[in-house]
């Protein structure tokens, strides 16, 4: 093994792990955009809420003296709780009115601003509930032991994270293509008016898609919580990162989001290794570069408007 290959491999595995989290959040954002045509600025807050809730679950499990392994189901339950509690309320209560705005530009702008307002509210809600100090639940990371690859130790949790992301990708595919609800979702994404004429309950599909998107973001946060310091501000950082993933892939692309998340994750980790100072530029620089040459993202095609 050459001197450079070892660290490169290590960076790649770290990058894939990072990409897995990014993918979960971004695919939720992409799903919401694909179906509701809303760019959800509050999406990062769902991620943060998932992370905070999971961190609290860890504290609770420790306090109750339950077996530490309970944390793994608790992570998933945290995500579900956050998504189901917040998703429908936000979509029905705070966003539904925007769907009636006729002019496309005015509607998009109202949605950007409304979701930004929701982002602000949720940011402060986090501070009110969890206070300003960071939460660490890093010990959950070590419960599953470590694996050595080429002598470099990785926590099995990291590898589990990758597995979860792959499972989510497969599950989404199966659910969308193979179930009635999934086909409804695809139909609404294609054309809400035609779908509604065909008797598909478009309003319900909107709520379902938004809630699933919120759950995915919260799942990303919950699963990432043992690997990071859960702190206010992680939401505002995650939203721009997941924007970048979605833009690189193309709005509404699901498999594309996986590819883009991988590219950003691995690119980021390799940059951390070679020029650490500039590593956080990678997602944005990649996005700029992609959009210069493919204005609608890597996997989305331009649509000619009929005139």
């Amino acid at each position: 093994m050459t001197a450079i290959a070892g660290p490169l491999l290590s960076a790649t595995i770290n990058g894939v792990t990072y990409g897995a989290t990014l993918f979960l959040v971004a695919v939720g954002l992409s799903l919401i955009f694909g179906v509701l045509r809303v760019l959800n600025v509050a999406h990062g807050s769902f991620y943060a809420l998932g992370a905070f809730t999971a961190a609290s679950a860890w504290l609770l499990i420790s306090a109750l003296g339950w077996p530490p392994l309970c944390i793994y189901p608790a992570l998933v339950i945290s995500a579900l709780v956050v998504g189901v509690a917040v998703g429908p309320v936000v979509e029905r209560g705070l966003l539904r009115w925007t769907f009636g705005i006729e002019a496309e530009a005015a509607r998009e702008n109202a949605q950007l601003l409304a979701t930004y307002a929701i982002f602000l509210m949720l940011e402060d809600a986090q501070k009110l509930i969890w206070g300003g100090q960071p939460y660490y639940s890093g010990s959950a990371l070590r419960l599953l032991g470590i694996t050595r690859i080429n002598g470099i130790p990785y926590t099995n949790y990291q590898l589990l994270l990758i597995l979860v992301a792959v499972l989510v990708l497969i599950a989404l595919r199966i659910l969308l293509r193979g179930t009635k609800m999934g086909k409804f979702v695809l139909a609404v994404a294609e054309d809400p008016e035609v779908s509604s004429a065909m008797g598909i309950p478009v309003a319900r599909i909107y709520t379902v898609a938004f809630t699933v998107g919120a759950i995915l973001a919260a799942l990303g946060g919950a699963l990432a919580s043992p690997t990071i310091g859960v702190n206010t501000g992680i939401g505002s950082e995650m939203i721009v990162l997941s924007f970048a993933v979605v833009a690189i892939a193309g709005l509404g692309q699901i498999e594309g989001a996986a590819v883009a998340a991988l590219v950003i994750g691995v690119g980021h980790s390799i940059a951390v290794f070679f020029f650490p100072a500039l590593s956080s530029v990678i997602p944005y620089a990649t996005m700029l570069l992609v959009l210069v040459f493919k204005p609608y993202g890597l996997f989305a095609a331009a649509q000619v408007r009929r005139i």
Binding site: L39, V240, A247, S280, V281, Y284, A285, L288, V292, P295
Partner: peptide, 29 residues
């Protein structure tokens, strides 16, 4: 020269990306 080619959400996001690149550079250089 780059940004005026985009509309709607892409305009918003590209502006955001550029400013975030600048933010990172300001922070790290």
């Amino acid at each position: 020269l780059l940004i005026v080619r985009y509309r709607g959400i892409f305009f918003a996001m590209l502006n955001l990306a550029l400013s975030m690149v600048a933010y990172t550079l300001l922070l790290k250089l």
